[in-house]
Design a protein around this nucleic acid. Structure first.
Lengths: 127, 127
DNA sequence: TTTATCTATTGACAAAAAGCAAATAGAGAT
DNA sequence: ATCTCTATTTGCTTTTTGTCAATAGATAAA
């Protein structure tokens, strides 16, 4: 393993990154409510992303966020209705990143509002 | 004018696609106000995307949208302060796609609102 | 008991979108 | 000539997202 990073896959130095898109913030928010494993998050994420999600997308996002230290995972002790579960927990860093996401999403909202107003304006001027 | 399915790279049938991201809708909206060339759009786009844009991103988006028939282009007749300009025009299809973008952006706003409310809720419950 | 189904996670590969660097080139100013 | 501003294009790479399918434990049905 080359220097930086640790845990699954580590290696390449990654510059500081913000959460992108909706998926990661939504997962962080779900984990703010309490620890959970991928399979149940796959179901719960529908609250924020109604469109059907491919499981691998969720699992990959969780693993990526663990590499960045936003969440941490442990194997479930309890007997399950299937193979063992990896339980994810929000870390302090993850909490901060969630707060940053919230700020960014507010900015995104403003940007969209501006765009929509400009569109209305543009349509009025057509008439 | 570079028509469907031939010229640069042409050939591959592309399935129907919605506008993605902010860039393309923003360009369509600017073109709703009137025809324009890439170099001036590169400046005007700052109204919607304050962050610095690499020219190639704009030009590529315009070419992609022309391939899909959302805009059409002609070479500028007038003398310019440099090499000839390619003037882009919004097409009827482009107008429809812009309207679709607007609907989608409204949905995105609702999604973000829901997320932000859920975050506030989650934070209250922590206290 | 083998088969199917639901639970649960992972890996490999491809496509789409964005970022970056630089080439090409016309026109006007120094 | 050379520099700068205008104007567009090309190629390469990275980042992000999407899709498909493999693996595997547990449980219920045939």
């Amino acid at each position: 393993m080359r220097g930086q990073g640790h845990g699954r896959g580590g290696g390449r130095r990654r510059r500081f990154r913000r959460p992108v898109g909706f998926l990661e913030p939504a997962l962080l928010l779900l984990l703010l409510r309490g620890p959970a494993h991928g399979y149940v998050l796959l179901d719960q994420i529908k609250e924020f992303e109604p469109s059907e999600m491919n499981p691998s997308v969720i699992y990959r996002a969780l693993r990526d966020m663990e590499e960045r230290g936003w969440v941490s995972s442990t194997w479930d002790q309890d007997q399950t209705q299937g193979p063992p579960r990896r339980i994810y927990c929000l870390t302090a860093l993850g909490n901060e990143m969630l707060a940053i996401s919230v700020k960014e999403l507010k900015m995104t909202q403003d940007q969209i509002s501006y765009f929509l107003n400009a569109y209305r304006q543009g349509m009025e001027d057509k008439d």
